[in-house]
Amino acid sequence: MIDRVITSGTFSLDGGTWEVDNNVWLVGNHREVVVIDAAHDAEAIAARVGGREVRAIVCTHAHNDHINAVRELAERTGAPIRLHPADQVLWEQEYGDKLGYEPLADGERVEVGGCALEILHTPGHSPGAVCVHGPELGVVFSGDTLFKGGPGATGRSYSSFETIIDSIRKRLLTLPPETVVHTGHGDSTSIGAEAPHLEEWIARGH
């Protein structure tokens, strides 16, 4: 079972602040879930979780709009916070040394509701960006690495266009074309819908 909560708030980096809507994804069954990206509104996320156990709060990356509700949600649920340690510098911008997490590793499998979610390290949007692949579910949760229409933004600190293109080419476009891509913002898409446009993105330096 896959569920989405859309939350609203702000994203701040490099001295700027922008209003954003975020997709928070819940994956699991009637007993337990994994929350992907605790953004903005812990109360709304906890309400959607209901009485289920939260096995983990997985952060696709540590930009503040994807982690700014993680402390409250972890306190409410007792769930471990999971993040790739390459995003430590961004994590500290939000939480300093006041909040810890359990490191995520490329290739790790997170079990929930009878299925396994595989962690794919996909740097570029940020150094520790990951995507969460559910092969049995036919989905990948792409965070801000891949959207409907192209790669995530790389114009700010700690990001790289060349790196995100490399990640998308090697880690995402190799997935089955029917794989549904559930993104960190906006509408979902599929690997098959995005793959033909890779060279266009490179040409325009999107």
Rank of each mutant, 00 (worst) to 15 (best):
Y95A: 11
H125G: 02
K148V: 08
R71Y: 09
V89C: 13
P135K: 00
D187S: 15
R109A: 14
W201L: 05
A69E: 01
H133R: 12
P196R: 04
L146G: 00
P85Y: 08
S167V: 09
K170E: 15
G128P: 02
K148M: 11
D87S: 01
D106F: 13
W91T: 03
A116Y: 05
F161H: 02
L90H: 02
H197A: 14
V130T: 06
H185L: 07
T189F: 08
S157A: 14
G124K: 04
I191Y: 03
P127H: 11
L198V: 12
L172I: 15
G114Q: 06
E200H: 13
G96E: 10
E108V: 15
L83F: 07
A79M: 06
E92W: 11
E178H: 15
G184A: 08
S126I: 01
T154D: 08
V112Q: 00
H182T: 07
E92N: 11
V112R: 00
R109L: 12
L146D: 01
Q93N: 14
F161K: 02
A116V: 08
G155N: 13
E108M: 15
K98G: 14
A129W: 00
W91N: 01
G113C: 05
R71N: 10
H185Q: 08
L83G: 03
L83V: 09
H125N: 03
E136W: 09
G107D: 15
H121V: 06
K170F: 15
E162N: 14
I191N: 04
R82D: 02
E75L: 12
F161N: 01
L137H: 05
G128I: 03
E102W: 13
H133I: 06
L172P: 04
T174Y: 08
H185C: 09
A69C: 05
L173S: 06
L198F: 07
V70M: 11
L173R: 05
V132M: 05
T189P: 08
H125Y: 04
H121W: 05
A129D: 05
H133G: 04
D144H: 15
L104K: 02
G143Y: 00
L117P: 00
V112W: 00
L83A: 07
E72R: 12
G186K: 09
A86G: 14
T174G: 12
L104D: 04
S157Q: 12
S160P: 06
I164M: 06
L137C: 07
E118F: 10
H133A: 06
Q93A: 14
P123D: 09
R82I: 05
I165W: 06
V139P: 01
G128H: 02
R82S: 03
T145W: 04
E72W: 08
T145M: 07
E199K: 09
V89H: 12
D106L: 15
